[in-house]
Nucleic acid binder design. Structure first.
Lengths: 358, 358
DNA sequence: AAAGTCCGCTAAACCGGTTTGCTAAACCGG
DNA sequence: CCGGTTTAGCAAACCGGTTTAGCGGACTTT
């Protein structure tokens, strides 16, 4: 008998106020095209009816969603546990919000990133950590949505924000070399899709190249068995170091590609009753907020995580505003080594400074 | 002359394939209603044209967005810097993703939460930390969107997920009392809107009640000048403790309402050349992942943060599925004290065990 | 008084899909 | 060969708004 309360539509308001739909629409969007009395009367009627313009319908006609998407190749549940991502999102949110944009997180839906992006109602996308190994990159790129790549395989025809991964990695390795280390272990970040080999143009490839460049210049090789990978988390770092240890590796220095993993490595080292940096030195990568508060404070390669998020959104918004796809802009931010307490001379006492005790 | 590449619509595909729009729609959504040949032919045409159903249009007709909103009264940029929120989002994302829902973060747009929620195209909302002091709660609640409240002022007519704040707080205070402490400082979380006073039904009010209950039972009062607040971050904790110290307070025990703030307090204490727990004991609240790795490991009140997110989404989805608003469900999760290294006897040596020195 | 201008408002087209109701042809058993 | 049931596909209505083109009346101008 009595209908279940239906959401009032614009037509209901129009009928009730004795005006046209157009007038109601104007009352909300172009009040100056109505006489002030009519406008307020319409708004009053709308108020009593509890009418609110349907956001989806509005999106459809205005052809914009005021939403930007954050795309990650991994499930959100794993992404949010990574402090790096939190800081990145902070930067993204900052710029998005001040421009009136909301944030929509897109992750592989039932395993398919392409499907997920097809469902998403966004004006543009910031894609983070999309390596070329991923099978759906092309589909995503051809989806016709403005996109900015962050920490991804460099693609000349897409705007991107990156950091100097190679330089940062080189600095980290050089620091350890200068302290006298000769025996290294690299802990890398596992790609989301188990690819057979590292994309040399991806973040991991670039950092690896930096490490190798520095070590190579000192005449030290880095065979593949000295590179171990795992998920980018504290637990992943623990597991990675333990695995290397069980394989018989006894490095005096660990180069981790993420702070979370570096912290994990330090924990694993301590659980083996060894000291950091007394027995093993550890260098991280990222310089997340937490790293300065660990025990010992982590020596790491700083990258401007928040700014990376900010820049990515600025780039994206500039594309969205003036559909300017002509010359894709590539922005590269600096990295720098922050020396704290987790690195020191190797236990055998070899030192950089000539002729000192030991 | 040549048009700028317009996104192909369903009509384009229909014309190109020589069928009706209906057929194209069926080819994507009800292929079984078409002959297999026609269906594949249509899909091929769609493929070559680069056609993808417009997600907004689809939302409009299907009356669902497959998106759930996460609503916070604070700007996303501050939210994402809080590790608590990261863990919570993890739980939210986990359940949302496995049900095929995406995540949309809603925060005050240009200061107005109501406006932001009006813009958001979501099937339901998980609102976190919405205290009744907030002026727009009513508007939000009357927006007609299914909503689940988390860590908010209890509203009997809305489903909610909470924890035993009062019990947890009491346990924390009792622990310190048992260690012999008599001199307390409470560090609270500042509400997003500078309200004149604490909402007694909000999270902070409940925790405060727990602290006071325990202290009161031991004959100890907690005057307002012993409660200091700040933003829920490490820096906020540092600032809060420093402020109390400058005001001449010399507590032997700190009860912090968030782990981030507890960590900040520990830092502030150490910067004063005091020891934790030698000179001052600190108890946190939340038990974020990081807390077990601080130095010293933080004694804190554990709450199941991830599960809180999971439960909230489960509740929300059950409302969305069967529009069952009849009996709003209230779920309360347990808290428990985790004793680690940041608490000990007060420096004057008063002990729990009767008849000891001092 | 006729012509031009401005004001306030409306009808209809449109955004891009989905869904309902229907029809014509093919298929069926008797 | 005939009435009844499937099958394959279509036209039109619909979702809930915005926007364009235009219309009638009041007001100004000459």
């Amino acid at each position: 008998m009595d209908q279940v309360a239906r959401r009032p539509r614009i037509a209901d308001v129009a009928r009730e106020a004795g005006v046209s739909k157009t007038a109601v629409s104007f009352a909300f969007n172009n009040p100056e095209r109505l006489s002030p009395e009519t406008a307020t009367r319409i708004r009053e009627v709308a108020e009593t009816l509890g009418y609110r313009p349907h956001p989806v319908a509005r999106m459809l006609t205005q052809r914009q969603t005021l939403t930007i998407g954050v795309l990650t190749p991994q499930a959100l549940a794993v992404i949010f546990s990574n402090p790096f991502f939190g800081a990145f999102s902070e930067g993204v949110a900052l710029v998005a919000e001040e421009s009136g944009y909301g944030l929509h997180f897109i992750s592989p839906l039932h395993g398919s990133l392409a499907r997920a992006i097809g469902r998403a109602t966004v004006d543009g996308v910031v894609a983070v950590g999309l390596s070329d190994g991923h099978p759906e990159v092309d589909q995503i790129r051809s989806a016709g949505v403005p996109i900015v790549l962050v920490d991804s395989t460099a693609l000349p025809d897409h705007p991107s924000v990156e950091i100097d991964d190679e330089g940062g990695a080189r600095a980290a390795a050089e620091h350890l070399l200068a302290l006298g280390h000769r025996d290294f272990l690299v802990i890398g970040v596992e790609p989301p899709q188990p690819t057979t080999q590292v994309d040399p143009e991806g973040v991991m490839g670039r950092r690896l190249r930096g490490y190798r460049a520095a070590l190579g210049a000192a005449g030290i090789g880095l065979p593949d068995d000295r590179v171990v990978v795992g998920p980018a988390s504290v637990e992943g770092g623990v597991a990675a170091f333990d695995r290397a240890w069980e394989d018989g590796l006894r490095p005096t220095a660990v180069l981790a590609m993420s702070d979370a993993m570096a912290i994990g490595a330090m924990r694993a080292i301590r659980e083996l009753r060894l000291g950091v940096p007394r027995d093993v030195s550890v260098v991280g990568f990222d310089d997340i907020d937490l790293s300065m508060h660990t025990d010992p404070p982590l020596t790491t390669v700083h990258q401007p995580i928040r700014r990376k998020g900010e820049e990515a959104v600025r780039l994206l918004l500039s594309i969205i505003d003036r559909r300017d796809v002509s010359k894709p802009e590539h922005r590269r931010l600096e990295t720098r080594l922050i020396v704290r307490g987790s690195t020191g001379h190797p236990p055998d006492g070899r030192k950089e400074v000539a002729g000192v005790d030991n």
